[in-house]
Design a protein around this nucleic acid. Structure first.
Length: 488
DNA sequence: AAAAAAT
């Protein structure tokens, strides 16, 4: 099919005429798989279909290729129709998008439902109401690649799925969840433990640096949550985990986990050891195009849920920049706004551990109370610093990209980019920017982001970020304390 | 450049 044909198809699709056709095309390979499965279960004849030409491997391959092409076209041209919607339309023509409006409709185990309510969840969030029916579908839970903005309830969605699918009578690992940092792995674990606290003898273990088990151990915990290095050891080198009995696999912050520059090697090596019956879930707020393509390659027959562009808007986060001429001036500017930003709590991001160290010591020398967290610290120190910050003992946390993703601290209302996020080639890192400022404004609350810009080169990066999100970043003077406090 | 790490 030529590019022009596709353009035309998309145009008609926009008029809503081709929806079912498109759905058929996409579902072909899956249906074939389904049929093959039935054959092995009960070898019957392929009862006649007037058009009884056997579907060849080539046809399937072509359909798959077409589907992925369509998928791409949809993302580019029809940002408001996701694959899920198409599939659901086919299932139920009356409902434009099948979703649940309450947790009861998901038929959770009673002890799990109890935990959900005890955590204060009343109704599913948007991502949850769309994803959960597909993730929990019985007997055919879907593999999923989901993108949804920070603070919209992704964690609860996959935690609920893991908890629904483990059987606590079986004392072996049934769910594995990978996250890019120690702190995030622990935070996910805290959600698992809270949500599952009424489940009989649910056991969770953390495959993170420093958690050492004796050689030859066999893990009997139901859920294993961890970071890539340790998890790889536990799964492959040390064989603590029987991979054949894993039924759910989650990659949180999936884009860093599978990006070449991220934790790709280790994540993929773990993923390859899983049985092909294992349910795969990839969650993140951002996916660069190339990463999304790769995600589609490693997950078989996934439902892809992506947000409409306009919902990715950052509308609830006010963004400013402060012009400085050098590092020292940035420090002075920060010092000036210390009073204003400590009305709430703030996270301050630096590009390197070194800058973070320097900034923290400058600030403390000046008598400002700040916390410092980077990968340079011991594990116990990291957890202690985070705990203190969560308890509000420090109003400011100076950190690196280690804290850019996933960390959920309700009281954080301000994010300061002491250094703008840049990638290896020095270009604006828009994904990291979105994740960083997503530490504030969670669950629809308002937030504030302040970017420090020093040298012309930085102004250029800031403009790249502005263009990427189509949002103005306004200049801010740090001299007028009153004005500042109004904004904060 | 940061994070992961039983290297």
């Amino acid at each position: 099919m030529s590019g022009q044909d596709w353009d035309k198809a998309i145009e008609e699709q926009e008029k809503g005429e081709l929806a079912s056709k498109v759905g058929n095309l996409r579902l072909n390979p899956a249906e074939k798989q389904h049929a093959a499965g039935d054959k092995t279960a009960a070898p019957t004849q392929n009862t006649g279909d007037t058009n009884n030409k056997e579907e060849s491997e080539e046809d399937v391959a072509k359909a798959v290729a077409d589907a992925s092409l369509l998928n791409k076209a949809l993302h580019n041209k029809l940002l408001d129709i996701s694959e899920t919607q198409l599939e659901v339309q086919q299932k139920d023509p009356n409902s434009p998008l099948y979703s649940v409006k309450s947790f009861e409709e998901l038929h959770l185990k009673p002890d799990l439902l109890k935990g959900v309510y005890e955590m204060g969840f009343n109704a599913p969030s948007k991502i949850q109401e769309t994803a959960l029916p597909l993730l929990l579908a019985d007997p055919r839970p879907k593999n999923m690649i989901a993108q949804s903005q920070s603070g919209t309830g992704k964690t609860a969605a996959f935690v609920l799925t893991m908890l629904s699918r483990v059987n606590t009578n079986n004392n072996w690992p049934q769910a594995i969840c990978l996250a890019p940092t120690l702190e995030l792995a622990m935070q996910i674990g805290a959600v698992v433990e809270q949500m599952g606290k009424n489940m009989k003898e649910l056991k969770v273990i953390y495959a993170v640096r420093g958690n050492k088990l004796p050689r030859g151990s066999k893990i009997e915990h139901h859920i294993v949550i961890g970071t890539p290095g340790t998890m790889l050891d536990w799964c492959i080198k040390l064989r603590f985990i029987d991979m054949n009995r894993i039924t759910v696999f989650v990659l949180d912050e999936a884009d860093v986990m599978i990006a070449t520059q991220g934790h790709q090697d280790q994540s993929i090596r773990i993923q390859r050891k899983l049985p092909n019956t294992c349910q795969m879930m990839l969650f993140s707020a951002t996916y660069e195009d190339s990463v999304m393509q790769f995600a589609n390659k490693i997950v078989s027959d996934p439902v892809v849920i992506r947000l409409r562009r306009e919902e990715e808007s950052l509308a609830n986060i006010k963004q400013f920049y402060v012009l400085c001429s050098n590092e020292k001036e940035k420090y002075e500017a920060l010092s000036n706004i210390y009073g204003a930003i400590t009305i709430g709590q703030a996270m301050i991001f630096c590009h390197t551990r070194k800058t973070a160290n320097w900034l923290a010591s400058q600030m403390s020398r000046e008598g400002h109370a700040v916390g410092l967290l980077s990968g340079e610290l011991d594990i116990s120190q990291r957890l202690a610093v985070l705990k203190r910050f969560k308890e509000g003992k420090e109003k400011i946390l100076i950190t690196t990209n280690v804290m850019a993703r996933g960390i959920d601290i309700e009281q954080v209302t301000i994010v300061v980019n002491f250094d703008l996020p840049v990638d290896m080639s020095g270009q604006a890192d828009c994904e990291t920017y979105l994740h960083r400022i997503g530490r504030t404004g969670r669950f629809g609350k308002n937030g504030l982001a302040i970017n420090f810009v020093d040298r012309p080169r930085n102004m250029d990066i800031l403009q790249q970020i502005e263009r990427h999100f189509g949002r103005k970043i306004l200049p801010l003077s740090t001299d007028d304390a009153e004005e500042l406090e109004k904004i904060v």
